[in-house]
Amino acid sequence: MMAAVKTILLVEDNANDVELTLAALQDSNVSNAVDVARDGAEALDYLHRRGPWSGRTSEAPVVVLLDLKMPKVDGLEVLREMKATPALRHVPVVMLTSSREESDLVRSYALGANAYVVKPVDFQKFFESVQQLGVFWALINEPAPAATPNPEEKP
């Protein structure tokens, strides 16, 4: 059973947010390993298994918790590329961000985000939100089989 447990990918440039998110997930029932990418470029390397992550052997993550605003490549670009890549398009992506800006919401969903969560300022609420996310996506949600064919192949 343990070998089948997939990782959670957290894409977050802010070290404090990384630590708080990890603390929240640790405190929950979610036992999945959490890999952290510190910006969009690293996240794409991780997902494509290249650069520092070329030796990664784990399966595609069970969920990607994706921050919006990051240096180099931002969250929306990571999302766009994931949804354009057949091997990654079924990986659930949760936008986890400080922005409640309507345009960010609209663009995220337009690019195929599976969920959009605004990080609450309140510690307790933040903790609860992250834990619920972890539980839902890692435990409750049934991921797509690894070899799911693409319904419409892009020409």
Binding site: D17, L20, S98, F123
Partner: peptide
């Protein structure tokens, strides 16, 4: 004001978060 609000929210969350921790 948008970016300031955003940029201010992160450290606030951290203050509250670490105070909670």
């Amino acid at each position: 004001s948008y970016s300031v609000s955003h940029d201010l929210r992160a450290p606030l969350r951290h203050i509250d978060g670490f105070a909670g921790l």
